[in-house]
Computed example of a mutant assay.
Amino acid sequence: MNPIIHLKTISEINKFVQTKTQHPLVSVVDFSASNEYLEEGIRISADFYTIMFKNYCSNQMKYGRQSIDFQDGNLICIAPKQLITLDNEIEKREDTMGWGLFFHPDLLYGTALGSKMNDYTFFSYEISEALHLSEKEKQTLYDCIQKIETELHENIDQHSQNLIVTNIELLLNYCLRYYGRQFITRKGINSNTISHVENLLKEYFRSDQIKEKGLPTVKDLAEAVHLSPNYLSDLLKKETGMNAQDHIHYYLIKEAKNILLNTNFSIGEVAFSLGFEYPQYFSKLFKQKTGHTPVEYRNLN
């Protein structure tokens, strides 16, 4: 297995793809202009954010354990420290087009975007959850890329960072919009996923798993439906108004109410039966979700 190539700086990615460094913290790469071939099985990680679009590539790319190619024109967003693998040689074709945007977290320090990056949860999606773009959407994102590239060719001055970051934020906001559209256009598939999640939670709280394993996690649910935790949570939020953690708490509180009203268990026993090691944590969550302590709820009903 090939060693991992770890790219720490923007100048290193530019050297890697053999393009000039215009700015120390951000780079735009034109994939269609590249005539280079990458070694098979190459593994890469980086200290910066990566956004890539390509309409065709004969190589398969792996991100974690997931594989995808760019045959249909997909956009992928990769957070710092993630590992990607190129399985096969890249084949040069006349109709190959695409671009890459690479920007270091240092570019965002002291900006409004820096404090908002956690809102762009798609950076933690799996490759298999890539964004599929319409022709109009491709052009809109490319327009943002062109504005960034144009600014990179200007002399760096006191306005450079603000203009570059503003256009990066615009691009990211369009990605949010397009992922929202993708959730809507896949409503049928999403409905099946939601039903699967709800059935998993119902069965989990009906069985002895809760006593043996404690509360299910968002990661548990995501693995069960073969999605990343962030993608599942965003899908549920879009379709139901509740994210994955909210769904877990909904079924937990529902089961807690059932136990409180149909048994003589002490509050501690109720908590332990629901997988809580400390009863006070259960009582705090119950009041947060219902407005009453478990004792108050039992007495009121």
Rank of each mutant, 00 (worst) to 15 (best):
182 Q>Y: 09
40 E>S: 15
88 N>C: 13
5 I>W: 05
129 E>R: 10
173 N>S: 08
269 E>K: 03
220 D>A: 14
293 T>S: 06
263 T>R: 02
39 E>N: 13
86 L>I: 06
70 F>K: 15
23 H>T: 07
155 N>G: 03
70 F>N: 12
250 Y>C: 05
40 E>G: 13
81 K>Y: 10
181 R>S: 07
227 L>S: 09
263 T>A: 04
254 K>L: 11
272 F>A: 10
298 R>Y: 12
218 V>Q: 14
96 T>N: 05
274 L>G: 10
183 F>S: 02
265 F>C: 14
213 K>T: 07
2 N>D: 03
93 R>I: 11
248 I>D: 00
70 F>H: 15
228 S>Q: 15
16 F>M: 12
174 Y>T: 07
72 D>Q: 06
162 N>S: 08
207 S>P: 10
249 H>L: 09
103 F>R: 06
71 Q>N: 08
126 E>G: 10
287 K>F: 06
12 E>I: 06
279 P>E: 12
200 L>H: 09
294 P>G: 04
261 L>I: 15
8 K>E: 02
57 C>N: 12
235 L>Q: 01
176 L>N: 04
244 A>I: 06
280 Q>G: 14
207 S>N: 00
72 D>T: 05
290 T>Q: 03
155 N>Y: 13
188 G>M: 14
89 E>S: 02
239 E>Y: 03
99 W>N: 03
199 N>I: 09
231 Y>Q: 07
173 N>C: 09
92 K>N: 13
134 S>I: 03
288 Q>E: 11
52 M>I: 11
30 D>F: 15
152 L>S: 02
123 F>V: 11
278 Y>D: 05
233 S>D: 07
212 E>L: 07
249 H>M: 14
114 G>P: 03
114 G>W: 02
297 Y>C: 01
291 G>A: 14
174 Y>I: 10
67 S>R: 05
275 G>K: 01
128 S>Y: 08
266 S>R: 00
250 Y>G: 12
171 L>H: 01
90 I>F: 07
14 N>A: 15
233 S>C: 13
263 T>I: 04
31 F>M: 00
132 H>K: 06
13 I>F: 11
87 D>F: 02
46 A>T: 14
118 N>Y: 13
24 P>C: 04
143 D>P: 00
39 E>P: 03
257 K>T: 03
239 E>K: 10
186 R>M: 06
6 H>Q: 04
22 Q>L: 04
176 L>Q: 09
78 I>W: 00
177 R>C: 10
83 L>T: 15
204 Y>D: 00
201 L>K: 00
81 K>I: 06
216 P>A: 13
299 N>A: 14
182 Q>A: 07
290 T>K: 02
93 R>F: 13
204 Y>V: 05
21 T>Y: 05
59 N>H: 02
